[in-house]
Amino acid sequence: MLDFIPSLPIASWVDEAVKWVTNTFEFFFDPVKDNFGWLLDTTAEYLSMIPPVVIILLVAVLAFFMSGKKFGLAVFSIIGLLFIENQELWSELMYTFTLVLYSSLLAVVIGIPVGILMSKSNTAESIIKPVLDFMQTMPAFVYLIPAVAFFGIGMVPGVFASFIFATPPVVRFTNLGIRQVSTELVEASDAFGATGQQKLFKVELPMAKPTIMAGVNQTIMLSLSMVVIASMIGASGLGRNVLSALQRAEAGAGFVAGFAIVILAIIIDRLTQNLNKPNQ
């Protein structure tokens, strides 16, 4: 019935666009691929070189102090990490951690300023919001395709795809946190003659800190959830073990690798949750 409208060649347009971007920005993508890829590999390798015992102890001490001198999380970390070491997944764990670390860092470093911009300008908010919706709801597999086109295969496109998937929460929470600062506090800061910058750093960001930290926590969790998907384009780590177990229908190996991801997730989550304790 609707035959009179010919099928729009959207797919081929997107193909053309990706091809164009790949070729035009090759000068940018290539060095990023090489240098950033080198950084990721080196970080993971160095982490793998540290004896596991040292890392386990460090994490346990960190957990003890960050959870307010309680033993629960510290004990869990020791047992969980020893289990991973015992299953001979330690170097995979280090690669996964590296992937999560860099994609979360990138998301936070870019996400918080974007969130601030969004909170300061209604125009910016109305433009950025649908972009964030798009980033979060577009199936994550779809990002892998241009990621491979831009950066080849390996860790770098994995970080890229995780970054796109994981950035929205930190942007949204930063925006929300700043907009939620009570009018009276904003007025107080204006009435005493604070500049815009002073208001942001001395009043708005400290007030919004618990909310922003909740966003950071979400971002880290989301980037961790991308680990398996990123392994499909060659990112090393625990995800690769899950993927290969899937391909060979090895339920046991899949379970062990998956369980290791869960342990890592719980440790990181509980650690970062302690960062968003409310203000005095």
Partner: peptide
């Protein structure tokens, strides 16, 4: 800004104190 800093200041109904 200079007037607000040097000449007048304000007290608020709900105090307007910074909790942190």
């Amino acid at each position: 800004r200079r007037v607000r800093r040097e000449k007048m200041s304000m007290v608020f109904q709900k105090f307007g104190l910074f909790p942190f």
